[in-house]
């Protein structure tokens, strides 16, 4: 019986591997690996471009993650890009902690000359932590951005992410609502503001309960 199950499982696995989608997924993964390898070699622009190209071969949700990385690299000041690239490499290799640490250290090293760059790195770190299910760390990083980088372009994303977590955990609801109100008032045209309004409404309902 056990044997039969193993055979069936093996056949299914083989069928999956041989299927076009699986083939594409494997090819996409290879492309990602290749892109990360290029980044690891310090060829940042090529690596970023490779990430974008790899994204085209992945399912949409996976592609979004890669594109996020590429966009972060593009948006950062040239001086900050190696740090981000290193973090990407580390995260890809499973060292999410080290990756986030590297990013946070870079921010704390106070060599972030361009305004908003620190926030971008912290949000990037928070996203990496999130993918590794390090929710507390992620929340802490978002909190840093919300509290300390109000003027940055990453602030709305951080506010929304933090508020949703607080809503889910049903804590600091008032504070979250205040942050969302600030976001709606200060960045009324940001793409995330319509979602922020919904979250605010839910927060207020939760507070009312």
């Amino acid at each position: 019986m056990r044997m039969r199950h193993a055979v069936i499982g093996g056949l299914l696995a083989l069928a999956y591997v041989l299927s076009p989608s699986a083939h594409a997924a494997l090819a996409g993964q290879e492309s990602v690996d290749m892109a990360v390898q290029i980044l690891a070699e310090g060829r940042l622009d090529d690596g970023r471009q490779a990430l974008v190209e790899a994204a085209t071969a992945l399912p949409p949700v996976e592609a979004t993650r890669l594109l996020r990385m590429a966009q972060t690299l593009a948006a950062l000041h040239p001086g900050m890009r190696p740090t981000a690239a290193r973090a990407i490499v580390l995260a890809h290799r499973g060292s999410v902690d080290r990756a986030t640490d590297a990013l946070v250290e870079a921010v704390e090293a106070a060599d972030v000359a361009e305004p908003g760059q620190g926030a971008a790195l912290l949000v990037f770190a928070a996203r990496l932590a999130e993918t590794a299910d390090q929710h507390e760390r992620s929340e802490a990083l978002y909190t840093r951005v919300v509290e300390g980088h109000r003027e940055s372009a990453s602030w709305p994303e951080a506010v929304l992410a933090l508020s949703e977590r607080r809503l889910a955990a049903e804590r600091d609801l008032s504070s979250a609502a205040t942050d969302l109100e600030d976001l709606i008032v200060e960045r009324p045209t940001h793409p995330l503001v319509p979602t922020a309004r919904l979250v605010l409404q839910r927060l207020q309902e939760a507070i009312g309960r």
Partner: peptide
């Protein structure tokens, strides 16, 4: 770039 950022944020959402 903001457009790209916004698009990706919405994609995640």
């Amino acid at each position: 770039q903001q457009t790209a950022e916004g698009a990706l944020a919405l994609a995640e959402r």
